[in-house]
Nucleic acid binder design. Structure first.
Length: 487
RNA sequence: GGCCCCUUGGUCAAGCGGUCUAAGACACCGCCCUUUCACGGCGGUAACAGGAGUUCGAGUCUCCUAGGGGUCACCA
């Protein structure tokens, strides 16, 4: 009767505050966000900090900052609130126990008094026999008196899920389709730890349900534990959400991208002068494609185009070169003002911030792939490497050699000295006319000038731009030095 | 090792039984443009993991093998 009233899509990003925002993390959050937006739904942020051991100071703030930086807004979360809070798991810790007890009553869970040491020993024994260890439900059949006795003694215990030993459980993943496993493969996992805190698995099920999450999006590593989640949903009589398991981003064919291996994180790229728009664009395309040939997307465009249909089933290898290429595309479209804003920090680092930013933009705007490249590209502007070899003056294509270069410089230097104003078009016209009047190719005249002024065979920009940047005095000094070298 | 998932060029990937002697992009190579380099333009090299089967017809469906990944914690 209400078939047109579709349920509002609700997704969540549930990171653990254990450190940096990895590229893989970032993409998980991005996809969950995009999926919600593409379907007119809500996106929530939940902090999963049940592991006090791994908690890192400041990690939560970093998560907020990174998401905000790239333009991802959450509709509900620790800082913005919402109707299903709190959104920090440690603040919900008292919430889980009643659910676990409900499961004990219904026979879907039980208290287990086995100690860690005992379990470790049994695990080791099983391994020694070459078997896969599985909890043997030892405590499941403990008598009520025994349980009460132990509780009275204050023995610590965990609560385990009681999974069926027979039959099979299947679930449907939106990307991978239907997956069926034998219940005999499933283990009686811990739901509540000895310290009373829920395990990730349990907290997840409870929280996702309580927060009305309709589409559980998470890494593929949870694919094989999903049947256990479903058994839990069924035990509670709750509606099972849709599952979307995302493939990891790889560093190479066998290793996941991870900060532990020193792989670059979002922040590292930002610090190297990559544009956040390019990073988002690239990361979105790693594991998802729009189904057509577009490859440039703003966040807004992604919000419209995103769909699970385009999500890949196999892991994608992170390709730094393609990211760099994409970043270069974005940089080339920057206005002079925007470019300079991004580049200034690097100009300062390189010691060229006093130079004409218009000319710098002209020579660097189409050449820089990421801003950290600037200092190396312009080092010659700051200091001439006087050790450059005379052979640099010889270039076949430009038809120059030492003699030609020498005569060119002899002719150019006095003319430039006599120039009334050190200005781009004036220098340009002077040199061009000089080439024409002497029957020289432009390149033949410009090559030695550029070499003398830069001391390098390859430079961003040409002789005229370099002359402007260096200024009259330094330009002439370098030209005369070049002439001396040729004499 | 058991179980689960995956497998199109070096990389990202399109393809959803015939239009595949397999698209596009990055990278690479060549040519053009040009004041070096870069940008830009044009072109090129390069792939259906292997084997059975189903079918008139298979990159597309099934099975097997191989390879890779994941998972088997009181971590998430």
């Amino acid at each position: 009767m209400e078939e047109n009233k579709k349920m509002t899509v609700r997704t969540r990003f549930a990171p653990s505050p254990t450190g940096y925002m990895h590229i893989g993390n970032l993409r998980s959050g991005l996809y969950a966000y995009l999926f919600a937006r593409a379907n007119g739904g809500k996106f929530l942020l939940r902090i999963e900090d049940t592991d006090q051991e791994r908690y890192v100071e400041g990690a939560v703030e970093l998560i907020y900052r990174t998401l905000k930086d790239i333009g991802i807004n959450w509709d509900e979360g620790p800082d913005v609130g919402g109707d299903f809070g709190p959104y920090v798991q440690s603040e919900r810790k008292n919430l889980y126990m009643p659910y676990a007890e409900q499961l004990i009553k219904s026979g879907h869970a039980y208290r287990c008094f086995c100690t860690k040491e005992e379990l470790e020993q049994r695990r080791a024994e099983a391994q020694a026999r070459g078997e896969t260890f599985k909890y043997d439900k030892h405590c499941l059949h403990m008598s009520e008196e025994e349980i009460q006795r132990r509780l009275a003694e204050g023995q610590s215990y965990v609560i385990r899920q009681n999974v069926p030993t027979e039959g099979e459980t299947s679930f449907t993943d939106e990307i991978f389709g239907t997956i069926t496993v034998n219940n005999s493969e499933l283990d009686d996992n811990v739901l509540i730890k000895a310290d009373g805190m829920p395990t990730y698995n349990f907290a997840n099920v409870i929280d996702d349900h309580l927060m009305n999450i309709t589409h559980v999006m998470r890494g593929m590593e949870y694919l094989s534990s999903t049947p256990k989640y479903n058994l839990l949903y069924e035990a509670f009589g709750w509606e099972i959400p849709k599952y979307i398991h995302m493939t990891p981003i790889m560093k190479d064919a066998q290793h996941k991208l991870s900060k532990r291996n020193g792989d670059a994180s979002y922040e590292d790229f930002i610090n190297k002068g990559y544009l956040k728009e390019a990073i988002v664009n690239y990361v979105a395309l790693l594991g998802w494609n729009p189904g057509d040939e577009r490859e440039r997307f703003t966040l807004k465009e992604l919000e419209e185009a995103f769909s699970v249909k385009g999500m890949s089933k196999s892991p994608a290898i992170f390709d730094n070169e393609k990211l760099t290429w994409l970043n270069a595309q974005y940089i080339r479209e920057l206005s002079e003002e925007e470019f300079t804003k991004h580049a200034m920090k690097w100009y300062e680092m390189a010691g060229i911030s006093h130079m004409n930013t218009s000319v710098l933009f002209k020579i660097l705007g189409q050449r820089v792939e990421y801003f950290a490249q600037i200092p190396d590209m312009v080092d010659f502007l700051v200091k001439l490497d006087e050790e450059y070899p005379v052979e640099f003056f010889t270039n076949k294509k430009s038809k120059t050699n030492s003699e030609v270069s020498k005569s060119v410089l002899e002719m150019v230097i006095p003319a430039l000295k006599a120039l009334d104003e050190w200005e781009e078009t004036k220098i340009h016209d002077l040199l061009m006319n000089m080439a024409a009047e002497n029957g020289l190719k432009n390149g033949t005249l410009l090559w030695p000038v550029r070499i003398a002024m830069a001391g390098k065979q390859v430079t961003p920009g040409g002789a005229i731009e370099i002359a402007i940047l260096l200024g009259r005095d330094e330009s002439l000094r370098r030209l005369e030095y070049g002439l001396k070298k040729l004499s």
